[in-house]
Amino acid sequence: MENRTHISVQDLNVHFRSEHVLKDINLSIPDRKITAIIGPSGCGKTTLLRSFNRLIDSTEGVRVSGRVLVDDENILDPKAEVTHIRKKMGLLLQKPYPLPMSIYDNVAYGPRIHGIRERRRLDEIVERFLKKASLWDEVRERLSQPASALSLGQQQRLCLARGLAVEPAIILGDEPTSALDPQSSQRIEATFTELKRDYTIVIVTHILRQARRLADHVIFLYLGELVEQGPAWDFFNNPKQPMTREYIKGLIS
C-alpha cells in the first residue's frame, strides 16, 4: 500500500525576531499514520507543528516564508482563512487546557461554533467523541461539572475529544503526554494508535522511546534543520545520517 501524502512542507523558513528558527524545511507527512517529530529541545519542533495550523501567527515578531500544503492547498497563503484551516486540525498541547466551562460544553464548544445548535445532535456528538477519546465511561454521570475538576490525564483526553468533535482530518500533538503520569500517558498513546485508522496524527516528542512505540514515520530536527525523515523502522534500525545515529544512541540531546 502506497502512502498518500497529507501534509507537505516546502522551503519553510521561520524567523523569530533575529533568530532563524526553521531553515529550509522540506518534508512530507503521510496520511493516516502517526508521524513523530523528534529532536532535542529548542530545535524548532513545536514551531514546525504550530506552522501547520498557523498558530505561529499569534506569536510576537514572527516571519514565515515557504509553503505548507494540506490536501494540496497552501495554508500559508495570506489569503487563506485560518479558522477553516484550524478546524481541519485538532491540537493537543503539553499541558491540557480545558476551556472554562463544563465537560459537556467543552466538547460541544467546537460544533456549536461551527453552527450546530440542536440539543439532540450535540448530545450525540458529545457522547461519540468522549467515547473516541475513551473518557465517556468516566464522565458520563457528571457531564455538567466543570472540566477543571477532572484529573490531568482526564483533562488531556477531554481536550482530545474536544478537538475530535470539530471533525478534523489531522491531529496535532505538542508533547501531549509530557505533563501526565505514566498510566495516563499510556491511555493517550493507546487512543492514538486506535485513532490512526481515521486520522493523520503528528506528534512532537522528545521521548525517543515514545517515538519508537508509536510512530510510523519519523522526522528528526536539529537546531532548526531537518536532519532525516523516513519510515520509523528504517529510521531507528538503519539511520542514514551520522547525527541521527548519535541521537538515537543518546549521545546528543
Partner: peptide
C-alpha cells in the same frame, strides 16, 4: 472542503 479564499461567512464578518 476548500478552505482557501473562503467567501466571508457571517461569523468571519
Amino acid at each position: 472542503m476548500r478552505f482557501l479564499r473562503v467567501t466571508l461567512v457571517p461569523r468571519r464578518v
